[in-house]
Computed example of a mutant assay.
Amino acid sequence: MRIGKLFDSLRGKNKHTMSEQNINEEIQDQNINPEVQNEETTATEEVVEQKSEVEVLKEELQKEKEQYLRLFAEFDNFKKRTSRERIDIFKTANKEVITALLPVIDDFERAMPQITKSEDTALVTGVELIQNKLVETLRGKGLIAMEVKAGDDFNTDLHEAITQIPAPSEDLKGKVVDCVETGYMLQDVVIRYAKVVVGM
C-alpha cells in the first residue's frame, strides 16, 4: 500500500523526467527489505556466538593442557618412586635369609678359638674353609660386617649398648669399651646393630 502511494507521488511529480524503471529503483532504495536486515542481524549474532564458542574452546583447551601436565608430572614421580622402591627391594631381597644365617656366623666365630687348639690340623683347616666360604658367599650378597673396636665413639645409628661399665681410662668415657656381638649391614641398611659395652 505504501509502495503504491510512493509510486503515485513520484509518477505525478516527475512524469517527464523519470522513467518507470527509475521509479522502481527509487522505490527499492526507499523501501529497505526487512528480511535483509534480519539476515544481517542474524549474521552478526552468529559471529558473536562463534567468538564466544572459540573463547570457550580455548579455555577448555588450556584446562586440558594443565590437567595433562599435572598427570604427566604425577606419572613421572610415580615412575621414579617405583624405580627407587624396586632398587631397594633388590638390595634387601635376601634380608630375611641372611639375617637368619647371622647366628651361624656367630657360632663359627665362637667355635674357631676352641677348634684351633685341636691337634688335628685337617679338622681346623676344614672348618676354616667352611667358615670362609659362608662369609664370602654372604659378602657377595651385600653383607658387610661392622668393624667396631675399643675406643670408637658410641654411635646409636650403628651400636646397641647392652651395658655400661666404669671406664678403665678417662679417654674411654662415653666410648666403646668392648664389642660383644658383631653388627652387620646389608648394602647400606643396618640389619643387626653391634652389641657393645660403653664406658661411663
Rank of each mutant, 00 (worst) to 15 (best):
Q114E: 15
M18P: 06
Q30P: 02
F75H: 12
D29C: 10
K80V: 01
R84G: 04
G4T: 02
S83L: 01
S52K: 05
L102V: 05
K15S: 14
I3G: 08
L71N: 15
R81Y: 09
K80S: 06
E45F: 06
E74P: 11
L69D: 08
G12V: 05
K95L: 09
L129Y: 09
V36I: 11
Q114R: 09
D29I: 15
N31D: 05
V47P: 03
P103G: 00
V48L: 03
T41H: 06
V36G: 00
M18K: 07
D88L: 12
M18L: 15
D107Y: 12
N24P: 03
I87V: 14
L129G: 08
N31M: 07
Q30M: 06
K58Q: 11
E59H: 10
A43F: 10
K5I: 15
T125M: 10
K13A: 02
E96Y: 07
D76I: 02
K117E: 07
R110Y: 12
T82F: 14
G12F: 08
T121Q: 04
E96D: 14
V104H: 08
F108Y: 11
L69Y: 14
D120Y: 04
T116M: 05
L57N: 13
F78V: 02
Q21S: 12
V124M: 01
E20V: 06
E66N: 06
N33C: 00
Y68S: 04
Q62L: 02
M112V: 12
I23A: 06
S52Q: 08
N38F: 06
E49I: 14
G12C: 02
K58R: 09
E39W: 08
E55F: 12
